[in-house]
Design a protein around this nucleic acid. Sequence first.
DNA 1: GTTTTCCGATAGGGATTTTCTATCACCCTC
DNA 2: GAGGGTGATAGAAAATCCCTATCGGAAAAC
Lengths: 295, 295
Amino acid sequence: MIGKLEMFIALANEQHFGRAAQSLGLTQPTLSTGIKQLEEQLGVQLVRRGSRYGGLTPEGQRALEWARQIVGDVRRFRDEMRYSREGLSGRLRLAVIPTALTWASRLVAGFQHRHEKVRFTIQSRTSIEILAMLENLEIDAGVSYLDNEPLGRVSTVPLYRESYTMICAQGHRLAKRDSVDWAEIGGEKLCLLTPDMQNRRIINKAFMDSGQAPVAEMESNSTVVLVSYVERGDWVTILPDDLARFLAAGKGLSIVPIRSPGEAHSVGLVAPYQEPHTPVLQALLDEAGALAKSD
Amino acid sequence: MIGKLEMFIALANEQHFGRAAQSLGLTQPTLSTGIKQLEEQLGVQLVRRGSRYGGLTPEGQRALEWARQIVGDVRRFRDEMRYSREGLSGRLRLAVIPTALTWASRLVAGFQHRHEKVRFTIQSRTSIEILAMLENLEIDAGVSYLDNEPLGRVSTVPLYRESYTMICAQGHRLAKRDSVDWAEIGGEKLCLLTPDMQNRRIINKAFMDSGQAPVAEMESNSTVVLVSYVERGDWVTILPDDLARFLAAGKGLSIVPIRSPGEAHSVGLVAPYQEPHTPVLQALLDEAGALAKSD
DNA sequence: GTTTTCCGATAGGGATTTTCTATCACCCTC
DNA sequence: GAGGGTGATAGAAAATCCCTATCGGAAAAC
């Protein structure tokens, strides 16, 4: 039964029998019959068929919520039993917005120093992807914006508040300034994150509030690309100060704080709403709380 | 996995491998290996052994909570899917304190009139047994006292408040009274419910408050026995008015209200805390709410 | 309009798991 | 030390799971 529910969740994620099977390490016929058996056991059609995957029926939608609840509980159960056997161990899967990667590293490094048996997987993702992956049980926690856009049913621990800086080459006309404001940057050659990133939407709004209509001449979903562009020309990019210092170090770049009238956006750890958390996740949330307080 | 968890719950209930197996329609070796496999899968010892069942380990206790949560969710899931297939149907298992049996009948009869495909099982139990059976998933809901003694994590719907009456033969010296008080009854030949019943404990307290130390010369766990005793002698019993009218009807018995200074005890429907309830149970809770209001 | 490609369902067989019956080993009681 | 009760173990039958191979149908490509 639980295996079938996992198949069903994977199918709803991938919207494709073959890929769903692959994601579980199964073959397509196995998953196909698995779903069929689940439907027979429940006496309800869950998936619309017609020579291809055609979405979930209303019952399927409802069943998906139950499946997530039950499979999630079974995993938390197993995790807790493993904990009572061998203490904090296992692998925590995190997804992190690009602008918080250095913070996430700091958090994880501190945690791992204390709990050596815990392994980590950190993926760089957009805030929207993070929420979806939390729902689908593909990650255990995320680091993302806590305000600004709706979150859904999750537990959160604030980590820090973003404040933005401008990065440019040292020869740039704004390089020697103590600070700049959004209106001044609007006219520069901008390279920014792609608009699927919430960070970019925040920056867009800041420009709009200052009366600018920003045009990013170069876009990327990688902050590394942004900075390496800045390094080789008269481009300008905008990043949180923490990440800016990390990426610009030793490259002959200038970091100029931006005077911001608007609110600073809160970034923090995001975990599934379900209680109780697994012991490892709880420990990470505690660590995040301590880190936020000490900072 | 879910099958194993059900075995584990049954074992914790019965405290005996053979009986637990029987309660699930399995043989003892099957359950025995099932528990062993569960322990291997979780990597944790759940049950203390030593040629007989020796209770749960601390990990076993924790695992039992998870097992109840998960198995309960799976059942609610299946129920909801069955509901979307064929509407309100299935069997609702109720346990009811003896003094509320007539009320429970009224509730169930009204419900079944509206939803003919729903079957019922009604058991007469003590309030303590009802709570245990709710925990162990042996019943879907109960009718019990809502105050007076601790309930635990349950949803409740008040139904009515008990007020007590005295029942005696028509020739009895108190038979013609408009009302009596607890002090007057204390000296009579009493037949009452056994002290494992919360109702008896409530009556004891009422006597104590009036300065009496009641001695029930005859005790039973069945209200039918109480009334049939009253019928054939100079005995007196005490029952809620509703049940008193039902049992005494046509028997030449007198029903005399008791003037009570104390609070009336609230009786209502009790269901597992977990949300969401199954559709059938939710409908019963709604029915109870409507019945209570109309009364 | 035909061919190709993609997708999911189905058939059949081998491996694994489940569950039964029968029996054993242990402990407690008498 | 015999007997009853309890749980573990062995071995066989039944059920299930999951694979490979293949089919049918629909969309896409030519």
